[in-house]
Amino acid sequence: MSIAVAVGLLTAASVYLFMQRGMVRIVLGFVLVSHAANLIIFAAGNPAFREIPYVGVAAPDDQADPLPQAFVLTAIVIAFSITMFMVTLAITTTTDDDTETEEESPVKVLTSSMPTVAAPRSTNGDADAPEPRTSQLPAQHSRAEERRDGEGGRP
């Protein structure tokens, strides 16, 4: 019963953090949700048996189930590695780790009837990445025009 309460608390906190802006809060959310998942695995191993599962430490029939412990050990390390990667993603931007522009915030997405929302950004990979949100660079004479004026007779 108590482990279920712990799971509930952790899940509630993590889902709240998911819905916020900023990559770091989302990363914290995922750290907490991985704790919740690990506790669910422990609950699967029946928390009624709580003795340390080493040979000879206690009577076998009230020793804890070693299998979920192995699962949790694996799950913790996997969660740790993905957290490290997500944290790196938080800082690979020109601006801070903001995950949405003003007009893209979910409330606006959900409330506006037909959201023609996203800033016109080309989604064809790295050919021409979108303008950074904050720094407004002066419009420059594009090189294409420069080339086109510069040369005439390409065969």
Binding site: L89, T93, T95, A129, P130, P132, R133
Partner: peptide, 9 residues
Amino acid sequence: AKLGANGAR
């Protein structure tokens, strides 16, 4: 995309 790999996130 180099800038703000939002898709990757």
